[in-house]
Amino acid sequence: MKRRRFLKRISSAGLVLALGAGSARRKAFGESAAISTGGKSRIIVARRPGKLLVDGKPNPPEISDLLGRGICALLDEKDCGAAWKKLFSPEDVVGVKINTLGGKGIANRPETVRAVCEALQAAGVPPQQIIVWDRLSQEMQRAGFEIVTEGDRPRCYGSDALGDRAYRRQTESSGSIGSCFSNILSKQCTALINMGVLKDHDLSGISIAMKNLFGVIHNPNRYHFDVHKDPYLPDLAMHPPLRQKLRLNVIDALTAQYHNGPAYKAEYTWPFEGILLGLDLVAVDRVGWDVIEARRKEAGLPSLKESGRAPEYLQIAEEKGLGFADSAKIETIEVT
């Protein structure tokens, strides 16, 4: 398809679709800090060691099955279709924000993303209303994703595919953040799944759920200094349009990295063979942080705190009411 025709088509389609947003679900989940039963945030750590990866390759049936069990456990549903329907309606345009900076080694696996897309479709979301996206199409391709802009399949492209309409031209403020937001988020999607990975990050300490959202703004490099202890990440996640659209966090942790991120460093990765799910992105980060710390300890590495890059932004996020960073306020459920 010709680039200009593609640009024209996806921008107008996105606008039309975005107008018919599923507002009921936004009210139900979007504005809350995603509190689970007992006033705690529920986080699912779903793992199947030895099964999600076979000879280092993702195993789609196991991934889909585990994802289904995870979403049911998260939302207290027996039927996973019903669970997904609690969050998404057929009118929604669902953005699935993935993380592909690390290339094939430490990015979302296409198989995991496909499992999410299939679950959404099973819940009634038409494939054309699912947009798998990251900042750059080229990075997505390097991570193994095929760029899809038409047909009966979920869309898959970077913000940059929108050309000079990739980002809003006016900055929007949210606390310490002043940025232009991706039009995929602003204009095309009515709902968002935040699909990060589980990895160490040189500056923020960890890159799991909250850090993945840096990919929705045009100028993340402006906020990298001391990002582990500054309010940038919480302020970004507090941005009302983002907060209203964010319905679910699904962390693709088939492979995880405990040191020297964000780039892929094979020597510091391990097959975690898991998926983390949560409505509260702060709590997701807290649980993921603990996983990374445990692995660092096993490897004889100093903790992130000792390394001077503990993700203190989680505490700031809790103080802002975004979610829970305190483990005592998090209900972690293991699913196998």
Partner: peptide, 16 residues
Amino acid sequence: VADKERGYCGVRENRD
């Protein structure tokens, strides 16, 4: 700047 990241200015990148 860590590998695959950019500096503050956004136009300089660490590649390996």
